[in-house]
Write a protein that binds this DNA or RNA. Structure first.
Lengths: 154, 154
DNA sequence: GTTAAATATATCGCACACGATTTAATCGTA
DNA sequence: TACGATTAAATCGTGTGCGATATATTTAAC
């Protein structure tokens, strides 16, 4: 019973579980991020600001693979919440430098507890720690491969 | 030099690469789906209709982990394109049954070539076929674990 | 030095996701 | 059998993603 459409079966797809797992992950974060008062993409922006400090919209975009059409409104919302400052660079008026306010910097402590709590949700009897590590490793490789295909390599 | 915030570094996150890879994957599909004239979530709905035939909005939602607030407008757009029919069930007027039009059914042939073409984008010297298979296996397990946490198990 | 190309944000429009609520139909139980 | 609870879609509002375009500034070429 060969099925010429077997490749289209949902359970044979690689893309669908990626999409579903990604969405589920965001939902797992939701209650923790609610305590911080931010959404998941906003949390990602805070991550790069905590890690690298003041930087341009473009820098943030390159780190998160997002562009100004997504970041500009998002950053305005973070500004509204008092977590972030935006100002044009003196040297180059085209560039907008984004930096953390004291309040934004302060959230880092609270946030630092999240990853450990999240990890618990990913662990289970069905998946060993080694398997999860291997998964993470492949995921990073895949990110590199796809980045090249999608973003292009200049 | 212990860093109390190391857990917040972008490259230590599991969530971010999942999010990025999922978005990249959608972009990889884009040119192929443009030939079909549908978006990626619309394509997923077609997948379950091709695979399981006529079914309710709720059935589709349970298979894709989406709810009526997302599906209703999406299905209206698929109807507009002439790919799908929506009608209330006789037996239970609350239920809306979704089925493929001839045109929607016809797209299956064209679509059946996509998975193979996509797979090429995921393959690379850096990732062996075995590694990709292991990745897919863990991904499915993860989907199961997270599904239980997020959707609940009733 | 003026102007065309390049660059960095911003804006616009559309299509998801999703929490919350509403509407309509069906079910369950006293 | 009436009526409250449950169920299935739909609606609403907010926040992304993202292709396409616009705006403003800087760079480069002449």
């Amino acid at each position: 019973m060969e099925d010429e459409f077997a490749a289209l079966y949902l359970e044979h797809q690689l893309c669908f579980p990626l999409y579903a797992v990604s969405r589920f992950t965001t939902k797992i974060y939701a209650p923790y991020l609610e305590e911080l008062g931010v959404t998941y993409p906003q949390y990602l922006v805070l991550l790069v600001l905590w890690q690298y400090g003041e930087q341009s919209v473009k820098d943030i975009g390159q780190r998160l693979y997002l562009e100004s059409n997504t970041l500009t409104p998002l950053l305005k919302r973070l500004t509204q919440k008092g977590l972030v400052k935006r100002e044009r660079a003196q040297a180059d008026e085209r560039t907008v430098l984004v930096s953390l306010t004291e309040q934004g910097q302060g959230l880092r402590e609270k946030a630092s507890l999240i990853p450990q709590r999240i990890l618990g949700s990913f662990q289970s009897g069905a998946i060993s720690e080694g398997e999860l590590l291997a998964f993470q490793k492949t995921l990073h490789k895949l990110l590199g491969v796809l980045e090249e295909k999608v973003v292009g390599e200049v």
